[in-house]
Amino acid sequence: MQTKNKIILLRISFWTGAIIDGIVGISMLFPGFWSTFNGLNILDSTPVLNYALWVGAPLMLGWTMLLLWADRKPLERKEVLIITVFPVILVLMANNLFALTSQLISFENIIPQLVIQSLLVLLFLFSYFNARNIHD
């Protein structure tokens, strides 16, 4: 693959992650919407849920900004993809599996998230390893 295409793939990875993180981060600012979006209709918007989501939302939105920052110099900052996979996405996936096995979220509601997360892991790892031999 040509260097130009490898850089484009890095940028696609950064932007894909940023868009998904941005959507999730914004949804976390609205706990009622977030609960419905995640199939947790049984949860009322309690102060505890609001607090937990509002703690996580700035972190998710901050990661969105980190991915957009990395996109500005994709070769120099390609390692951001690795730290996005390990631990961020993999821990989120483990949390989703915990929610599934705890019967907090149904199989039908968690599978789309796990599929998206798995595709992001594959995209990010492929993009990183594909570009690792290009020097800044």
Rank of each mutant, 00 (worst) to 15 (best):
P47Q: 10
V80H: 12
S127M: 04
K6V: 08
L97R: 02
F33S: 07
Q117T: 03
I26H: 03
L120C: 10
L104W: 11
A99R: 13
A99M: 11
M1I: 06
L119K: 02
I134W: 11
S27G: 06
L9Q: 05
Y51Q: 14
E108C: 00
Y128Q: 05
N38M: 12
P74F: 10
L75C: 01
V91F: 08
F124Y: 15
L90N: 12
P74E: 09
N95D: 14
I110C: 01
V85H: 08
P47T: 12
L61C: 09
I116M: 10
N96P: 01
S127C: 06
L123Y: 06
L100F: 11
A131I: 04
N38G: 02
L53I: 01
S27Q: 06
A52C: 07
D21H: 07
V55K: 11
G22E: 10
L92D: 10
T36A: 13
P31C: 09
I12Q: 10
I89V: 13
T16V: 15
W15M: 13
S106Y: 04
A52G: 06
L122N: 00
Y128N: 07
I134S: 03
I110A: 05
G56I: 03
L9K: 07
I110P: 00
F14C: 11
A131Y: 11
V115C: 00
F30S: 03
D71F: 05
L81Y: 10
S27L: 09
I134P: 04
W69M: 14
N133P: 00
D71S: 15
Y51F: 15
N95I: 11
G62R: 05
P31S: 06
L90A: 06
I89D: 03
I26P: 02
N5R: 15
R132E: 08
T64F: 10
T84P: 00
S127D: 09
V121I: 15
I19A: 12
L43M: 13
G56R: 05
P87F: 03
V48F: 15
D136K: 13
I110G: 00
L120F: 08
Y51V: 03
S106D: 14
R11L: 01
G17I: 11
N130L: 15
I134H: 05
L125W: 03
F98T: 14
F98P: 00
N133K: 14
Y51C: 05
P87E: 09
R72A: 02
S106M: 07
L100S: 01
F98R: 15
N50M: 07
N96Q: 12
V80L: 14
T101Y: 13
A18I: 12
M65R: 05
A70V: 05
L114A: 03
N96Y: 02
N95Q: 14
I82P: 00
A94T: 09
L100P: 01
